[in-house]
Write a protein that binds this DNA or RNA. Structure first.
Length: 468
DNA sequence: CGTAGCCCCTGGAAGC
DNA sequence: TGCTTCCAGGGGCTAC
């Protein structure tokens, strides 16, 4: 869990507990926590006295008078705690150091991600964990920024992933990266090669500023993390985006959005942090009969690449493996093609079956969309996805347009009187309204076709202006 | 080579 | 209430 400020606080809190103390005994409760042989680790440290602690990025080093060094990383949950003589080891103790004053220093690590490694004073900086690290934001000079910029021009990963990787800049983690990108008004998914030299100056400046203030505040305390017993920092009170998805942005009226970047939760302001990109992927979502197809067509006419998930599903229903899967799951006997209307009858009779169908269909649709995106040329791509949030697909899109209408039932009846009632019934089961807060644009289609066209035109122009 | 995605673990919270 | 699923302040490894 800890990022640079929290590790710095741990260093400050733990130093007085162990410096000038001799290690009398080491109990390794979880062998994998020690990289290398735990017996060698213990043998080299027992009898040694700790001279000082040091920190590089998120690594914490313990230096001893026998020229040995412990390199440690707390990862997500690691903590060093002092245990008094009459106290029991905690449930999550992994390595316990017995000190010459009768106290123990316990390395607690619920999730077992943390590590410790023995090294030599002369060569510890050459250990692979430390040689990989880039500069801390405070140490980055003008000439370093130019080098970082050169390096970044060759990388296409999202800037957030680039900053989380410690090889160029070290110290930022998931919280502070989100804060820095918000401060610099850079969208976390911006490809690294689009970050300008001027952006880099701002990123470095804000990183140093935010990390420094966080250290001053004692670090951030989120969930139950504490640098030591009874100690907790306050910087979480000053966070502007982390953990605040769904709340109002402090700089504008937009609602902060949560997405996923490289498997990590990411919060940002969709208005302040506009995505600059050479291409944009947009989703249109909403209930059946709301007007999605009309809007999709407006995009098509303006030269966007467009795809309808309903068409994708139609094609999937003709595939042999899909027909087989559905027959197995629903006890049907479709031959060459799944009969959509017959299937709908089954779903209406037992609404629990909808989820089962979605479990089969959604991942396949997602796959098809990804393939389509890869193969389509235009820089603006739009996909109509009726159940975008249910299918958990919203994260792959840069912007989401939602369409709602109080006239869906009338439109469905006009389109196909035969199936209208059934589709209306399924529509009623989906809670589109609860996703409103996740949308970037909302179109209320309650008036004329002209009105709908005007509204979609307006959004098309905004999206075009976002393009690099 | 760069990159996406999975993996290492445990437990609390939210969803059903 | 009990069960399931998701999520968490990190980073290494592997398959493409």
């Amino acid at each position: 869990m800890p990022e640079l400020p929290e590790v710095e606080i741990v260093k400050q809190v733990v130093s007085p507990l162990i410096v000038n103390r001799r290690i009398e005994k080491i109990v390794v409760l979880r062998r994998q926590t020690i990289l290398g042989d735990p017996e060698v680790f213990s043998k080299n440290l027992i009898g040694a006295t700790c001279t000082h602690l040091s920190r590089i990025g998120k690594y914490l080093m313990f230096h001893f008078d026998n020229q040995k060094v412990i390199i440690s990383h707390l990862r997500m949950e690691g903590k060093f705690y002092e245990i008094l003589p009459d106290e029991k080891d905690s449930k999550y103790a992994r390595v316990v150091f017995y000190l010459d004053n009768g106290h123990r220093l316990s390395f607690d690590d619920m999730r077992c991600f943390g590590i410790m490694k023995l090294a030599d004073e002369q060569t510890y900086l050459k250990e692979k964990e430390l040689t990989k690290l880039g500069l801390e934001p405070f140490d980055i000079k003008e000439k370093d920024i130019a080098l970082i910029y050169q390096k970044s021009k060759e990388r296409k990963i999202p800037i957030k992933s680039f900053l989380l990787n410690q090889e160029t800049i070290t110290g930022l983690g998931n919280i502070y990266v989100d804060e820095v990108l918000f401060a610099t008004k850079i969208h976390p998914h911006t490809p690294t090669n689009l970050i300008t030299l001027n952006d880099w100056k701002k990123i470095v400046e804000h990183s140093a500023r935010i990390l420094t203030s966080a250290i001053k505040a004692g670090g951030s305390t989120v969930k139950s993390y504490h640098p030591g017993k009874g100690i907790s920092g306050d910087f979480q009170l000053f966070l502007k985006v982390y953990g605040k998805a769904g709340q109002k942005c402090l700089n504008c009226d937009a609602i902060l959005r949560k997405t996923v970047t490289g498997g990590r939760g990411t919060t940002y302001c969709p208005h302040c942090q506009i995505k600059r990109n050479s291409s944009l992927l947009i989703a249109i979502t909403g209930p059946a009969g709301s007007g999605k197809s009309t809007i999709l067509n407006n995009f098509k006419v303006r030269g966007f690449a467009t795809l309808s998930s309903d068409d994708v599903v139609k094609e999937l229903y003709k595939k042999e493996n899909v027909v087989r899967l559905i027959n197995e799951k629903f006890g049907t006997d479709f031959k060459n093609e799944v009969d959509k209307n017959a299937l709908r009858q089954i779903l209406i009779a037992d609404s629990k079956k909808i989820k089962e169908l979605e479990k089969i269909v959604h991942p396949l649709v997602k796959k098809e969309i990804i393939t389509w995106v890869k193969n389509s040329k235009p820089s603006l791509k739009v996909v109509e996805v009726p159940l975008l949030y249910e299918a958990k697909m919203s994260n792959m899109f840069d912007y989401v347009i939602g369409v709602i209408s109080d006239k869906t039932n009338e439109r469905l009846a006009l389109r196909d009187p035969h199936s209208a009632k059934d589709i209306q019934q399924i529509n009623a089961l989906n809670q589109f309204s609860q996703y409103k807060k996740n949308l970037d644009f909302l179109i209320e289609n309650n008036s004329s076709l002209d009105d709908l066209n005007r509204k979609s035109e307006k959004i098309i122009n905004i999206l075009k202006s976002y393009l690099n």
